[in-house]
């Protein structure tokens, strides 16, 4: 796969996001969030609900404009959705009136790309995500896991610099989820794309994250940053084995108790109010 022209470093500079509530008052969904992410990293965002992780992802995607601060990718400011940033949603974002093939080729077709080149690319992508021979199927004929494979392929078809995933495996059963985690790691190492992935699962955040932000609510912020070895190890070591290794288990418990404390604090606050 070719390197995207506009690819490069993601820079998030003191981003604020304040939601005005319809009944008056406001919620600080993000406060002074800053970080740099080099090309080719896999960042996972984890935190209790209300910590602003999905808000942050939507700002990176360009679906939301922050109330303060700036986000740039490869030097150019993000002001709206664009082909340089592919999205994978939890579910329901595939076009069920189109076949698997037409879903994957949607991006190139919107650009009126060369047809034969596109169809060759779609064939490649189908094989890459393990759906060889399924191109003619309609998406509603596929299981949830296969649908997410289509979503991955659809976003890769545009060859984006960065892929943003909003709880992409949240609706899958446990076993399918493990398989898909491995697929995401494979795609990441093969394509060298920058990936930002939001998840609720501590284990998933640890296993996939080459870098992990634990976020905290009220106001939404990055509480702690972890540089992790597991994503690279996961490409060679058997995932289940990795997940029961002492290092992994220690990290998992540490982060769980961190998030647990946050939840306790929130409960405490609500008790006072």
């Amino acid at each position: 796969m070719t390197e995207h022209g506009g690819g490069g470093q993601l820079r998030v500079e003191s981003v604020d996001m304040v939601y005005e509530l319809p009944k008056g008052g406001s919620v600080q969904a993000l406060k002074d969030v800053s970080f740099d992410l080099e090309q080719g990293r896999l960042l996972t965002l984890l935190g209790p609900s209300g910590c602003g992780k999905t808000t942050l992802l939507n700002i990176l995607a360009g679906f939301l404009a922050p109330t303060g601060g700036q986000v740039t990718l490869g030097g150019s400011a993000i002001t709206g959705p664009g082909q340089d940033r592919g999205m994978v949603f939890q579910q329901g974002a595939l076009f069920e009136w189109l076949s698997v093939e037409k879903n994957i080729s949607f991006g190139p077709r919107m650009k009126r790309a060369d047809k034969s080149g596109t169809s060759a690319r779609v064939e490649d992508l189908l094989k890459t995500v393990g759906l060889g021979g399924f191109g003619e199927k309609m998406v509603y004929e596929l299981s949830g896991g296969m649908q997410q494979r289509v979503a991955l392929a659809r976003c890769l078809a545009n060859d984006p610099a960065m892929i943003l995933m909003d709880e992409p495996l949240g609706a899958l059963d446990a076993l399918t989820r493990e398989k898909m985690q491995s697929l995401i790691l494979e795609l990441w190492s093969e394509t060298g794309k920058t990936i930002v992935l939001v998840t609720h699962s501590v284990e998933e955040a640890l296993f996939l994250g080459d870098i992990l932000f634990v976020m905290a609510p009220r106001p939404g912020r990055i509480e702690r940053t972890y540089e992790l070895p597991f994503a690279k190890m996961g490409l060679e070591v058997e995932p289940r084995e990795l997940k029961r290794s002492p290092e992994f288990v220690d990290k998992r418990e540490e982060i769980l108790s961190l998030i647990w404390d946050m939840e306790e604090q929130i409960m405490g606050h609500e008790g006072e109010a």
Binding site: G80, G82, F89, Q90, G92, A93, F95, F106, M110, R154
Partner: peptide
């Protein structure tokens, strides 16, 4: 129309007209 679908289409490079007619 699920907002995710519309957002996905924009992210894939669709114009407003294409979102209207294709999504």
């Amino acid at each position: 129309a699920n907002l995710s679908k519309v957002r996905a289409a924009y992210s894939l490079g669709a114009s407003k007209w294409q979102v209207l007619t294709r999504v």
